[in-house]
């Protein structure tokens, strides 16, 4: 029996879309250029990257929608590329006077969002940051399911985000986008059952090719929001995730 958790709340932010409903319904708001990210104190928020702020915004939305306490919920953050804008700023400093900003430096790590979330929320629970190229979404979900199952945790939030591929010498574009799903163990009204991702076929060996590795979850998020099921979603790398039953 594959483990099943219930999607009790969703979060989303991208430029122009303050939440998942706005994105899925195609309601673009040109004024929505910065995530609210109310969890971060103003001083931290001013120094945090867009990737960090939209990741934390998505987690906060998912926590609020599911009634989970941001201080107590274990988290899995995931990103395919990490802190691109901060990296570019550090590279410009290297090319300039060679002096790096200490704040930029510690905010350049892939777990910058996870760390700032933990500090701002006062959250001491297990947390990890998964980086897996095109397979970032299925690997983040797998790690979320496994962490919840191993710890017997009643709930856990998985968040995936990437910001623009800012390096001028790297071809391709990535749309900034963050989403999160709150997964709870106990069945709840209005919370579709989601099964642990399984590998249907070997898709290994190829380096990352997708422009927007974390955006592949959008059809799954749409189905979770609509309460559709049972439905199966193909994810990169031969992975598949199943909404095991319709919203009850």
């Amino acid at each position: 029996m594959t483990a099943v958790l219930h999607a009790a709340g969703l979060g989303f932010w991208s430029p122009g879309h303050r939440d998942l409903a706005a994105r899925l319904d195609g309601v673009r708001d040109a004024a929505e250029v910065e995530p609210a990210c109310a969890l971060l104190p103003p001083r931290m928020a001013r120094r945090a990257s867009l990737l960090t702020r939209m990741s934390i915004e998505a987690v906060s939305q998912a926590a609020a929608a599911s009634g989970l306490d941001v201080r107590e919920v274990p988290t899995v953050f995931a990103t395919a590329r990490g802190e691109m804008a901060t990296l570019l700023a550090l590279l410009d400093s290297l090319a300039g006077d060679g002096q790096l900003s200490p704040t930029r430096f510690h905010n350049s790590v892939y777990n910058a969002a996870a760390g700032q979330f933990s500090v701002a929320a006062g959250n001491r629970q297990p947390s990890t940051t998964v980086v897996a190229g095109d397979e970032t979404v299925p690997m983040a979900l797998l790690e979320g399911f496994c962490l919840a199952e191993e710890r017997g945790a009643p709930a856990l939030i998985v968040a995936c985000a990437d910001e623009a591929l800012a390096l001028p010498m790297v071809p391709g574009e990535t749309e900034p986008l963050a989403w999160a799903v709150a997964l709870v163990r106990e069945a709840r009204t209005g919370a579709p059952a989601l099964a642990r991702p399984v590998r249907r076929r070997d898709g290994a060996g190829s380096p990352s090719a997708l422009a927007n590795p974390v955006a592949c979850a959008l059809p799954m998020l749409a189905a979770l929001r609509a309460g559709e099921g049972p439905r199966s979603f193909e994810l990169p790398g031969g992975w598949s995730v199943e909404i095991a039953e319709a919203r009850s």
Binding site: T129, V131, A132, S208
Partner: peptide, 28 residues
Amino acid sequence: RTQHQPDALVALARATCGLAGPGLTVST
């Protein structure tokens, strides 16, 4: 993508050793 991104290490190890199970990078 093949030199900077952390998943390149996983892809290289999978390709050279023929591993076909799940693969990820933890970057904390």
